[in-house]
Amino acid sequence: MATTDSIVAPAEPPPESSAKRSGGLSPLTRYLLVRLALIIPMLWILVTMVFVLMRVIGDPISSALGGRLSAEQIAERKAAAGLDRPILTQYWEYMSGLLHGDFGRTLTDNRSVAEILVTNGAATLELSFWALLVAFSVGIPLGRLAARYRDQFPDVVLRLFAILVYAAPVFFVGLLLKLAFTPFGWPSSGRASTSAELAIDDVHPHTGIMIIDAILYGDTGYILDVLQHAVLPAIALGLLTGGVFLRLVRVNLLQTLRMDYVTAARARGVAERRVMNRHAFRNALVPVVTVMGLQIALLLGGAILTETTFEWKGLGYQLAEYLIRRDFLAVQGIVTLIALIVCAASFLIDVIVAFVDPRVRF
């Protein structure tokens, strides 16, 4: 007769996986779906705020064309633009147009805002790329250096530098760079010289990104000309974000160096350079990637002043032009486009962070 000690307890069924409990969705998929769902109300709030603010300012047609047209002509323009209709009707038509990719038309030159995106958006994209390159080149190495010499003279100098470049207005830094380098013949306005720009515009396919079109054209002189024109605007805008990266890398690297696994690596006799590069620095970069989404908005905001200072004809340059003309319908469309770009960039950063750091998925 079997004793109770020899009775084997029935095996418990294996626990359901987290994917099955969540309806077959992996944690990564659920995380990305939640982030994507949050974009929809955020976009709706942004677009609604822009629409309301543009209407609070006043009648856009009278503001842009008042004094140049008669009252009858202004009334005709209002009727053609639908501005004589109730505000809720205007809002519904505007939102319906956005869903179909119609961002409206400008008042002063009757251009499609979508056309402005195609024509000038590539220039802003190119400037943002060069600025990010400067920000990474400045912020990450100097942040590591500041963390290595914590509370010593290099650290103090670098922290002051980070505060100064972040606090200084972008247009002021741009003007200083122009004053410093223009006397030496360094180009300080436009995206390329006139001859290079005319030649590159004939390239097919034409991407609108000047450096790519110059490479497709195949002239080394034009490539160098485009790079020279990009240096000063990229430094002026990149230093703004570089100061943020410098302080962020320093703080996160110092926190990572206090972790137990770093202490254990040092106790095993691992060289300090290897501890810094293999154990601390990689983990300290995860918050930097996270903050990049916020810096996209900072770059686009700074691009307005940078492009105006250096006559870099991108979205920011066009936005400033339409603000001067009081063309608020154009401003409304461009600001909405910038909001869409920021939201898309933030979602892309969330995707990258989810792959780099699995902890954010749960």
Rank of each mutant, 00 (worst) to 15 (best):
L160F: 13
L36I: 14
N283A: 07
E126R: 00
A199Y: 06
A280L: 04
P287G: 05
R30K: 15
I341H: 06
T336E: 09
A71V: 14
V118P: 02
S26R: 15
I209V: 13
A354P: 05
A11N: 12
I209R: 00
A167K: 10
F310V: 02
A230K: 04
Y322K: 02
A71H: 12
G314Q: 01
I39E: 02
E16Y: 07
L88D: 09
F136V: 09
Q152G: 10
L160E: 13
V34N: 10
F171P: 02
F51W: 04
E12N: 12
L240T: 01
P183Y: 09
E115F: 14
A180F: 12
S26E: 00
L32T: 12
Y217D: 10
A19W: 04
F171N: 02
L337N: 11
P41N: 06
L340W: 11
E272W: 07
S195W: 13
I352W: 01
H206E: 07
L107Y: 00
T89P: 00
A271R: 12
L160M: 13
I140T: 02
D155F: 06
L323P: 00
R258A: 11
E93M: 03
Y222S: 07
L337K: 05
I223N: 05
A297S: 14
L158K: 01
I235V: 15
A199K: 10
L25K: 15
L28A: 12
A271W: 06
G302C: 10
Q295C: 08
T256V: 11
I39K: 04
G101Q: 05
Q318S: 11
S22Y: 13
S189H: 09
M95W: 06
L160T: 10
L348S: 11
K178Q: 13
G23T: 08
S189Y: 13
V113R: 07
V351N: 04
L33A: 12
T306I: 09
L28V: 10
A147Q: 01
Y317E: 01
A339T: 03
N120Y: 14
L198I: 15
V351E: 03
